[in-house]
């Protein structure tokens, strides 16, 4: 493992990394103080520094929705904001939706309607759906489809995701998809 360039390593001025700052996040109702560099996204703060890995990194560029969390009650892509910019904010992640052992109705509906396969997009889908319901602007399955389009599911569970959300919002699923015998 000879390193031709290793000589260059010694005597070099270190290139600094950003100075760490203290950030306070209220995550799932619990105050969490973090000492992190400003270049840490909210997503990485949750996953790497708070061990809240329920929030997923799918693309890291706002193109998939796997990182969706609720910040001050609104759904956002946590990959495209810096944790330091959310200092003091209320953050709700998938880990904060259930009440103790009792699952959030969306979580229960996702299981019942088999609204996922690999499960990787699922926390983002559920947080997004929670945001969608809170926004209170949805009345039809078409509107659910449109307003859930920021959450990609490569396993293709969309019809079941819509059915699960409908079940929670309207008490029943109107989407006709699915198997005989489901």
């Amino acid at each position: 493992m000879a390193r031709p360039s290793s000589a260059a390593r010694t005597g070099l001025e270190k290139i600094p990394t950003p100075a760490k700052v203290t950030v306070t996040l209220h995550v799932n109702g619990v105050e969490r103080k973090l000492t992190i560099a400003p270049w840490t996204t909210l997503l990485d703060a949750l996953r790497l520094y708070l061990d809240l890995t329920g929030t997923k990194k799918g693309c890291d560029h706002g193109q998939c929705g796997a990182c969706t969390v609720l910040v001050d009650g609104r759904r956002i892509n946590s990959c495209l904001t810096l944790a330091v910019m959310k200092d003091g904010a209320q953050v709700t992640t998938i880990e904060g939706l259930a009440q103790g052992n009792a699952l959030h109705p969306l979580q229960q509906a996702f299981i019942e309607h088999d609204a996922f396969q690999c499960g990787y997009c699922t926390p983002g889908q559920i947080c997004s759906a929670a945001g969608l319901i809170a926004e209170g602007r949805v009345q039809t399955a078409d509107e659910i489809r449109e307003l859930m389009s920021g959450n990609i599911c490569r396993c293709g569970a969309y019809p079941n995701i819509v059915a699960a959300i409908e079940a929670v919002m309207f008490g029943k699923a109107t989407d006709r998809s699915g198997a005989t015998g489901r």
């Binding site: 489809r145 449109e146 859930m148 389009s149 920021g150 019809p159 819509v162 015998g181």
Partner: peptide
């Protein structure tokens, strides 16, 4: 591009 939710409508599966 992969399909998003809005691209997918009713899909009936029969075994």
């Amino acid at each position: 591009h992969v399909p998003v939710n809005a691209d997918v409508h009713a899909i009936d599966v029969i075994f």
